[in-house]
Amino acid sequence: MTKELIEATINGEPVEFLCEPRQSLLEVLRDVLNLTGTKEGCLTGDCGACSVILDGRVVCSCLVLGVEVAGGAIETVEGLAEGTHLTELQQTFLEDAALQCGICTPGFLIAAKALLDSNPDPSETEVRYALAGNLCRCTGYDKIVRAVMDAAALMRQRQSSSSSAKQGREA
């Protein structure tokens, strides 16, 4: 099958790749680009393990074709941390023991990031519904929900202290 050359941005970096029209974005990420942090759980969009952010929206990368992302911006789990500096979400997932086997973790981190990007102060119910597309079979979700709420609180704290510092400078 003829391959197409696709240009996109992945985790802030411009990327070119060749892919067959039938290959999913998940297959491209894992098998073409070696970005294996994004996981395959079902290939039918039901488990959320392959969640990535595409142009600001959470999508199941198993339901998107590689050729569809031409010109798009993709965020995967590999792009969350800045160098060795973990994000608040990654840190609270560790501190709250929000993972056991860890296979669903990349998808949950992506879905939670998308939630907190748009809603910095979600209620427990809002967190649960934002994560409804991600299955976890190990944790019963309890510690995951707590980790997301804790990360939200840390992020709000950081933002308010940086904005008060800014105000302090302005004053």
Binding site: T76, V77, E78, L80, Q90, L94, E95, L99, G102, L109
Partner: peptide, 22 residues
């Protein structure tokens, strides 16, 4: 309750599961 030793690999996508081998 220390942080699990394999934790960082599992929140950064670095941990290698069976399907990640080639």
């Amino acid at each position: 309750r220390p942080i699990r030793p394999d934790g960082v690999d599992k929140v950064t996508g670095r941990a290698k599961y069976g399907a990640d081998y080639a």
